[in-house]
Design a protein around this nucleic acid. Sequence first.
DNA 1: CTCACGGGATCGTTGAACAAAAGTACTGTC
DNA 2: GACAGTACTTTTGTTCAACGATCCCGTGAG
Lengths: 241, 241
Amino acid sequence: MSTGALGTWVSDLEKDKDLIGRSSTAERVAGILRDRVTEGFIPPGTRMSEEAIGEALGVSRNTLREAFRLLAHERLLVHELNRGVFVRTLSKDDVVELYRLRQIVEGAAVRELASAPDQVIATIRAAVEDGERAASEHRWPDVGTANLQFHQGIVQLAGSPRLEEFMLRIHAELRLVFHVMHNPRRFHEPYLARNRELMAALESRNTQHAELLLAVYLADAERQLVRAFAGAEPSGPELAR
Amino acid sequence: MSTGALGTWVSDLEKDKDLIGRSSTAERVAGILRDRVTEGFIPPGTRMSEEAIGEALGVSRNTLREAFRLLAHERLLVHELNRGVFVRTLSKDDVVELYRLRQIVEGAAVRELASAPDQVIATIRAAVEDGERAASEHRWPDVGTANLQFHQGIVQLAGSPRLEEFMLRIHAELRLVFHVMHNPRRFHEPYLARNRELMAALESRNTQHAELLLAVYLADAERQLVRAFAGAEPSGPELAR
DNA sequence: CTCACGGGATCGTTGAACAAAAGTACTGTC
DNA sequence: GACAGTACTTTTGTTCAACGATCCCGTGAG
């Protein structure tokens, strides 16, 4: 690496490099909407009117439709022909699948622990510490964000950018799910200790222990969410809206 | 490599023009182009002119851009701002990552063999038999297709539709890779026997054996492809563009 | 109560238009 | 002849207005 002691600012610039090239209006619009949706400001099931949103953001319908395509591909919006796009509504079944998927992918990633570079472990450690700092400052939503970053770090153990990108989108879906837990502190805080415990297993390269911790971790979280869904969405025919 | 000289594929597109007439135009256009690209009719690196293709298919630029956006998200096309979209050119590194990814995902899927429904096994069997039938009739490209269906079946063992969709796109990328093997028979035929062997292990629910077979299977295929890439793309500065 | 039938709203798609960026050809200088 | 700077051309990015197609919903007949 030529980025020696002198030029840390050079590498800093590289972070913004793609930010320059990415000046496409459609993608910026998608970014804005993505935030609004994942933060829960636009509740699931809401219909996204092309006209209203296009006017509000000052972009044409065509550009807005490109942004919609992007977000629909990320499964944050669903596109129904001739009906429009809606904020995704996740069901209990989705939660079950998402956790089955996490179990499979993150489990496989942990199994690659032996061949993972130290830098990935450092990323995971940073996420754990971010979460603890956010908790100590009572920023509970940020605790949730750090939590997902922790798991994103675990996925990095697998060493596949494509898989990382895929799980990034899965984690965006999970954010949607988390909104059923009306008390973010109660939901996220207990996992801080477990994150640290799991991280310790990773740092000592104890694959077996890490795998076990992860499995019970995910199973517990799934159980919590499924129970919350059972309360919020009683059994019976689904009544949209 | 420009669009003019060797571009007979542009006029070939006009044959599909009349297929446009049902459901969403943009998605149908994407479907047509997806086929053309994965079948190798439009070689990697080709620039996809909005005007030329829009005219050939008889759709407006706006609609075509929606189709491009779709295919770019599937990684079959790459979109460079203010320069246009190009057919993806895959590198040796891509091959390595793709096989690392397959190893991880398919390996994890096989490990779920115990809880997989019999119907999935039946799907896998069907793919094996399709491949053998295609081979006996000397339809070598179809052998490749059946091969990928076989692996898609393995992914289904995991029981996650999201993962299946993800791997479907990965398999589309693989099709792009396979085109470096100029002799499809030599490349695909030897795997027919191994498919059958692996299927037998799955049908007898022998997870361990299946896992082992899969691992060497994928490692061999990767080695073959990497070697082919080393021949076709000698070490040296990349002359993309 | 059910079902057919409009009216109105919204989506799907087109074609034209223009600014901005990239690509290309042409100059003039050394 | 090599090179830099400058127009010119092509292509993309984005907007706008329009119109047919489709869906939603309320109304009224049966």
